[in-house]
Amino acid sequence: MTDPAVPVEPMDPRSGVSTRAADAVAGAAVAAITEVTDRRRRLGWLFWLSLGWIVLTILAAIFANVLPLQDPNLQSATLNAGPSTAHFFGTDQLGRDIFSRVIFGSRVSIVVGFGAIAIGLALGGTLGMIAAYYRGTVDTIVNAVSYVLLAFPALVAVIAIVTFWKASLWKITLIIGIASAPLIFRIVRAATLSYATRDFVMAARTLGATSRRVLVKELLPNILPTVVSFSLIGVATVIVLEGSLAFLGLSIPGPTPSWGNMLNQSRTGLNTVPGQSNPWLVIFPAAAMFLFLITLNLVGDRLRQHFDVSEIKL
């Protein structure tokens, strides 16, 4: 990305632009370059804030049972109530505590999101490294298969499978994990390819390292930054996919709360008859999901810039 022939000014990117304002073209070039180097140096407070939020959400999901929360399925007498000290986020149409359901509901998104990407990495990642390292027939075949699988729209495929094979947490995770493998394969393959012909790999092989050692000790550490940053964005994508399924009522069935099925349930709260709508049922799960998705995207994106991962052509 950074062209070494162009002098990089170690100053604030905005002042870098203004000193050369006379020439907008050069200004644009400098801005683009200083922007990259500036971001490479430090991740910024927004990154750490986002990472903190992700960690907090995951901790809350893990320790939801221990936290002083109300039972997410306990039906109290107060239906469709607004936020109060008794119910921080109000109650749903069955009198269940929305605050508690939002926290317990994060479990589904987190398990499906990280679980599916882990499965996708195990399948697509391994195949991607092997295909890029050995090339040849194996590479050609797996590559062709990945193109075929990518052509199929993911949501439609997952909907179709879930229809005939009733949904449960593990099945959804497995199906989306397999569905994400082709894309992960393409990313890992492209990343591995860019290192497979470098001198240090050649050196390791000349020294007599086994293929397994080259793959694990030489190539894996180098592609890891790319894989990690794309994986975080992948987790966000999977969470959206599960959420869409849940919204259509096709993911994990109630009464188990999930952000997606809470939003599905909120449809009844969107009553156009005055006095019959419950906006809190929409706002809180939507906000929880939005915050989790935007922080995942932000952390993934910043890491990508930090490690200077250029946009790989897939």
Binding site: G243, S244, L263, L293, I294
Partner: peptide, 25 residues
């Protein structure tokens, strides 16, 4: 626009319906 990345249809749609169809018509 980066924020829009975190706004899939199933999140935005209920919120917009709430704003433009329920609260205002």
């Amino acid at each position: 626009t980066f924020a829009m990345l975190a706004m899939p249809p199933f999140i935005v749609a209920p919120v917009l319906v709430l704003l433009f169809a329920v609260n205002t018509h």
